[in-house]
Design a binder for these strands. Structure first.
Lengths: 343, 343
DNA sequence: TAATTACACGCAATCGATTGCATAATATTT
DNA sequence: AAATATTATGCAATCGATTGCGTGTAATTA
């Protein structure tokens, strides 16, 4: 198999007896090049099978038209939808996406940040690993003025743009909803408390309780490291053995909410009559579980799109050096798992 | 905000009074460089905050250490897991991944192929768009001897490596299972028949029927364009209104299988007693639906890993110019939706 | 001591496209 | 007709790292 040689603008140039600069400009339809020449060059280029070498162009222009993405892992509904949004928006603006996974490990997150930097991406979008508690690996980006946007799992410590939802308010609404449905003993399955999203969801839960004259009871709050199905199931067991038993549970994600429902079903506890459940994320599984799960809809795709838009918006123009915190709206989706009172 | 200047090997060189080539080699721990010098250079490099410019290196070496990926869309369990596998394996071999989505449109697939080519990726992995029926946009890769691997939704027409599962056999096993459970009238929700995966699943379905002395009835096979939940629901309605009604359904994916179950439940049809259902993919929803869905487990992550491994394996060494078709094993996961006879 | 080998490093070209600064040719204005 | 503007194109440096080839010095061998 013969590998055909790379065709460059030099080849086109000599075939046409013009200079490489003319070819370069012609291919960009630069106005200083004659119409005839442009046509000639374009024709020859396709005829010779020319393909512009972006690597060379990138080196010269100091721009790669590529953005890097670091997420915990792509095989989760929220993240894959988020990424899909990022990719769509980036593509619309002529950018490509290099994505990497941290697998929720700070070590991998650091490595990825380094590699993306070395690839000279024009910006990066990050959703932090569960583990991450130090943010120095992002400093080189700040130092070089490379746009950096955090999404969902964020930190404010770097003074960058943030795209988030109002976790506190969402959780408060979810909890208030349980209260409105007549729940008296509401438990909460929380996530790692050093991650803003889970901390705020817990805060919202507590806020709702307090505003309604309930007390916050420690034994009704369980913090889970990963919010996995297994953890959810175990915690549900613990909670549902309590006496008196919780009659409502708000969980920090849908995965654990589903586990709660499954566990309750096994124990013969009726949902929503004896136990009302509200999750968070509006994952596909929330509509499949029976009874369907009430949950908070997280606008994943929009978050991705906005993050990309924010990243690629030309900040240089504006004199204001603001670090925006963009908060997107969520909505409570009420389904059977929490509907005791008909609307 | 002052953007700090790029530090290059030239800067390190002049700071140390050595040549750039020495710095370059020292950073690579080239054996022809003295130990002392290597240490000096490394120290200075970190001290000056040097970050190698991969773009420049890529241009010079004609290698980008990047592989491109084109998939229909990432926000599906199978695909996101596949990608996760690709990324993990690629990373382990020092490669990065640029991924793109075709959204099941050939036009986008073409654009993506072009862009990835222009970025001079070292190889690409593709899972075809639903629409794609012409493969010329991949010829430039073949022409330049850039490794090209198709996964799952493949074509044999380009004589490349393929990573697939045995769809025919899997479908046959699934259908045979329904027969073994006593089903007499087995229907099939099929996917677009010009895509190998769906064609073969249908073939396997038919094969099982014929081998058991059943006849293949057209009215029991419905071809769906997208295999979406809505399509699945509508088709289920159609099938379940037939007289006599099917007592078993094998669907080309889990999404539609779940729709079938939901539809049947609404119609008061008992599963699995009156209707046994088997899906395909082993998506998360298959364990959430009640009754749990029997399905074919698709080794998504392994497929991604193997595709990447295959792509990056050094073919140059081997004299044999084989285009491998790697077939991975699947397994039938029997759950309640099809269990009439206790094992 | 002379000759050979090993070691450590520098020179300069190269990868392919871009672009500021000429320059030549033609067109327009005065 | 001379001066100026416009149009079309070329020259050559540049982006930053890599690498084949060459060379000077020190170490080893005959």
């Amino acid at each position: 198999m013969k590998k055909s040689k790379e065709v460059t603008i030099y080849d086109i140039a000599s075939a046409l007896n013009v200079s490489p600069s003319t070819v370069s400009r012609a291919l960009k339809k630069h106005k200083s090049i004659g119409k005839e020449t442009i046509k000639k060059v374009e024709k020859k280029a396709t005829q010779m099978g020319y393909r512009p070498n972006r690597v060379a162009a990138n080196l010269r222009t100091q721009k790669t038209n590529t953005i890097g993405v670091i997420v915990p892992r792509v095989d989760r509904p929220f993240i894959s939808t988020l990424i899909s949004g990022i990719e769509s928006e980036a593509k619309a603006k002529g950018y490509h996406v290099i994505f990497t996974q941290s697998h929720d490990k700070i070590k991998l997150e650091k490595e990825n940040a380094k590699l993306l930097f070395n690839y000279r991406v024009d910006g990066i979008i990050v959703s932090l690993a569960m583990e991450t508690n130090n943010y120095d690996h992002f400093l080189p980006f700040k130092d070089k003025d490379i746009p950096l946007v955090f999404v969902d799992r964020v930190t404010e410590s770097l003074d960058t743009d943030l795209v988030v939802i109002d976790n506190t308010q969402s959780a408060q609404i979810a909890t208030q909803h349980l209260i409105d449905q007549g729940c008296k003993r509401i438990a909460h399955l929380a996530g790692a408390q050093h991650r803003n999203v889970y901390l705020n969801r817990r805060k919202g839960y507590e806020k709702a309780l307090l505003e309604n004259g309930f007390i916050v009871e420690k034994k009704r709050i369980i913090e889970l490291k990963q919010l996995s199905a297994e953890e959810g199931y175990q915690s549900a067991k613990t909670l549902l053995k309590q006496n008196p038993r919780p009659d409502g549970i708000f969980t920090a994600n849908d995965t654990t909410a589903v586990s709660v429902i499954q566990c309750a079903k096994e124990l013969g506890i009726k949902i929503p009559e004896e136990l009302a459940v509200v999750g968070f994320n509006n994952d596909p599984i929330s509509t499949i579980i029976d009874p369907a799960l009430s949950t908070i809809n997280h606008p994943a795709r929009e978050m991705g799109e906005i993050a990309a838009r924010q990243l690629l918006s030309d900040k240089k123009d504006s004199i204001i050096e603001s670090s925006n915190i963009i908060k997107l709206k969520t909505e409570l989706i009420q389904r059977a798992s929490s509907t005791r009172i008909e609307k």
